[in-house]
Design a protein around this nucleic acid. Structure first.
Lengths: 367, 367
DNA sequence: TTGTAAGCGTTATCAA
DNA sequence: TTGATAACGCTTACAA
């Protein structure tokens, strides 16, 4: 695929589905195109009763739907928001997407979703595509460096909102978690539960600013607090053995302490849960706290304590910011950071066995 | 929202992002619109070397992207496939969607995804929307009766593929699981493991043909095989107590037998896992087998045995069927049923404790 | 209140 | 191998 991947697919001869046009409706109703157009716009009120009903029934008879392509072409408004998702099979991404979609619909926009599977090439391809559909704004949850395509879009004035991660050397609104505070909540909770030796595990930090922020603040806390032991690792989850090794290494040095593992996101939590199960470890004895809530967290052992992100709010905020920029005459407002608080969901994995059973895994949970 | 929900959103005065048009590129390159158009179509080869490079660099300088809206308007080809998803937070739906999206991209189409949250009103609204974008085909995984909108789309000749469920009184291609065979696999496996008393649990059967088919075949098997005890229930999972009651009722009558629960889909598996945990039941002692594989299935107790659907293949097949119809001159080919086999993933939840431990929960698993 | 006509960015049909 | 021009279905001045 070349730089401009815009070849159409090899021509397919085919009969186009027959769809009524505004002209046909106009004829059927015995009125002008303009009136029909008005009927389907926000000027409907300016039509006479009679006209309205004639158009309505004609349109219904022909099951007419205004062609958004033509509308978008004429008015420059596609009514489309694009969303780039790094991994559509990640429950967190889907949950945010749900919020994005709802907000879009409420505001009269539709959502064009593209999944990049964390592949920069796909990301570029999709961005070109979204540009070609003239999306009016873009919600981006993507991997890697900002591509040429993304910069071009931004330069053209397409409003952009980044989810969860900033991009280096790239100005745009960002919506996500308050990473510093989240790490604080996590460590405060673990301390309070009696854990004094914490392993922080993250997916590769690379270009993902939120992962960087979490990792950095974790290390900061470690440095600031002499009574807290711990270490941090960032690793690719695909290398299964690596994770086992890291955990084994951590635990082997943990004698005499109360060890806990803090997972940087839902993927890590899943992988760590597998790893701990493979070791036959008992949750609680080894503390486990995951960032991101997952539907199965209270099914595993005594339940896994999590810090839930307000995914719906994040998605909605992204759209909100987008539309705000869209409405602004001057687009030059400085990039806006919207940060949300995580919510602690207490379960058994952060209850030390010898501690009085302060947190019952079921009753304390507020879903 | 009226019958024709096509009002545009209240006008927002705004500066449109500046995007280059074909005319600007033509001028910049000192050639005609037509040549530029050809460059970006499959006629590129017919342009001279010189012309090609001039257009390429002009386009790059202006970061030009052909306007799909205009293309779609002119040629009637939107290059868009629509997908209606009943519940986007359902991992099964997302997995299928992933396959759909990949197949679309490979064939040069983009995917417009609409989530209905199982709401018929939203379904109708989204269908109208998809129609207005002139999607060339529709992949539908939706609840309820075929709506007027859906019938209209079908009548206009838009190719449709139904996922997982047929719609009563509505002809269309269907892609999904071989429900009969899946139930057979499930029961054969449970029998073989020594379970002789099976509770089948399904979400409400209502309009979902696949749920009906599974339930019906389960009852058939029960009727055919006098050595097999069991019962079937279809219930809404939201009513949490109902599920507990059904399970309690089943187990209270199960003394002297080896009871197992068969879950009709992933949602049911999740709910049942919760319910069994709340009862303090031990998996395996009570057998548990779920249709649909979920990422957390081997984390719960001894692991939950599942029958995995080939989600990717299902998604791809849906697109394949769609495009096939699109290419056919005569669209009247009879509806096509594409059925896939489930794959059994053995884990501890279908290992009876007193049985020799034939299936080790980890090593038998092929992910 | 209604209608006429121009034009949005592209491709298709011709002609050169 | 190239280019001029007429659509595509719609909205939007501007007229009536």
């Amino acid at each position: 695929m070349g730089t401009f991947p815009f070849h159409r697919h090899a021509a397919m001869p085919r009969t186009t589905p027959h769809r009524a046009t505004i002209l046909q409706v106009a004829r059927e109703a015995g009125v002008s195109k303009t009136s029909v157009s008005r009927y389907f716009s926000d000027e409907r009120a300016r039509l006479s009763r009679d006209m309205q009903s004639r158009i309505a029934s004609a349109a219904r008879r022909l099951s007419y739907h205004p062609n958004q392509m033509a509308r978008g072409l004429k008015g420059g408004r596609s009514q489309l928001i694009g969303m780039l998702v790094a991994d559509i099979r990640n429950p967190f991404s889907v949950a945010v997407m749900h919020g994005v979609e709802q907000a879009c619909r409420e505001r009269g926009f539709s959502l064009l979703v593209c999944n990049t599977d964390n592949d920069p090439a796909q990301e570029r391809e999709h961005l070109a595509l979204l540009a070609s559909y003239r999306v009016e704004g873009l919600v981006i949850n993507a991997a890697g460096q900002p591509s040429r395509e993304l910069r071009a879009l931004a330069a053209q004035g397409t409003p952009l909102v980044l989810l969860d991660r900033m991009l280096s050397d790239f100005e745009a609104d960002v919506v996500g978690l308050d990473n510093t505070q989240t790490i604080d909540m996590a460590l405060d909770h673990l301390r309070q539960q009696g854990y004094d030796n914490v392993l922080y595990l993250s997916e590769p930090v690379a270009q993902a600013s939120s992962r960087q922020a979490r990792l950095k603040h974790f290390e900061q806390r470690l440095a600031d607090d002499p009574t807290l032991r711990g270490e941090a690792h960032s690793l690719a989850l695909a290398e299964d053995n690596r994770l086992q090794d890291v955990i084994a290494g951590f635990l082997s040095q943990a004698s005499g302490s109360a060890p806990a593992i803090l997972c940087g996101n839902g993927n890590v939590t899943l992988a760590v849960a597998h790893a701990l199960q493979a070791r036959g470890a008992r949750l609680g004895e080894i503390g486990l706290l995951g960032i991101d809530e997952l539907e199965w967290c209270n099914l595993v052992g005594p339940g896994i304590t999590t810090l839930a992100q307000p995914t719906d709010a994040i998605g909605r905020a992204a759209v909100h910011n987008l539309l705000q920029r869209l409405e602004e005459p001057q687009r030059q407002a400085p990039p806006k950071r919207t940060h949300y608080q995580a919510r602690l969901i207490l379960r058994g994995s952060t209850c030390r066995p010898n501690t009085p059973d302060q947190y019952d895994s079921v009753s304390q949970e507020r879903p």
